[in-house]
């Protein structure tokens, strides 16, 4: 019962944070609130027996994510400019989708129902086998590393992909080098007759023109 009260309280808190996030225009505040949102969800995860998830959410969702946002904020305007023009369309889509989902959850087994299909199929075998066959008490770890190890490999690849992307898009060193490289190329080009080829842009110069125009 206590857990239910905690649950209700935490979820209400989430709603409150979410509404504030929508309504706040100052991005630093928004980011901090979104961190708080993640932490509160982590608390909910603990309450729902998902301690591993809670730990990850606190570390990754609330921690790394917030750090990333804050780091990015160093380079971009701190305030959101008011713009309301798409509220109606967005509202219609969200209310429509929300209504459908509400209808659907009414037909789901209620929270914690031991007879729910999720507790009857697949999962019992994990709980039964994990201890005897693999000798690791934490079933989540077992499943993550063995039964669904391929998901974990995929997850690693996703992280690698994102890292690759951030590196390609941002890596400061690469970009300054690219400017130099391009200068060198241009110098070389003047010697060579072939000039009708597109080359990579130097974002710095593009930025400057854009800024001065703005």
């Amino acid at each position: 019962m206590v857990s239910l009260v905690i649950d209700i309280f935490l979820l209400a808190l989430l709603v409150l944070i979410a509404v504030m996030v929508v309504r706040t225009g100052r991005l630093y505040a928004v980011i901090v609130m979104s961190g708080a949102y993640s932490l509160t969800s982590a608390a909910i995860f603990v309450n729902l027996d998902a301690v591993d998830v809670a730990f990850t959410e606190a570390a990754v969702g609330a921690g790394i994510s917030t750090v990333l946002f804050l780091a990015a904020m160093a380079y971009i305007p701190a305030d959101e400019k008011p713009s309301q023009n798409r509220n109606f369309l967005a509202g219609v889509i969200c209310i429509g989708a929300g209504a459908l989902l509400l209808l659907a959850v009414m037909d789901l087994p209620s929270l914690g129902d031991a007879m729910a299909p999720v507790h009857q199929h697949v999962a019992p075998r994990y709980l039964a086998e994990s201890g005897s066959a693999l000798h690791i008490p934490n079933v989540v770890t077992t499943v993550l590393a063995s039964y669904r190890g391929f998901d974990t490999l995929g997850e690693t690849i996703v992280v690698f992909t994102a890292g690759l992307g951030v590196l390609m898009l941002l890596a400061g060193a690469t970009r300054t080098n690219r400017v130099k490289a391009d200068n060198r190329k241009t110098a070389a080009k003047t010697a060579k007759p072939k000039t009708n080829k597109p080359k990579t842009a130097k974002p710095k110069s593009a930025t400057k023109t854009a800024r001065t125009k703005a």
Binding site: D52, V140, T152
Partner: peptide, 9 residues
Amino acid sequence: PLPHVLILT
């Protein structure tokens, strides 16, 4: 434990 695993990913 299964949803936990999925959500970790």
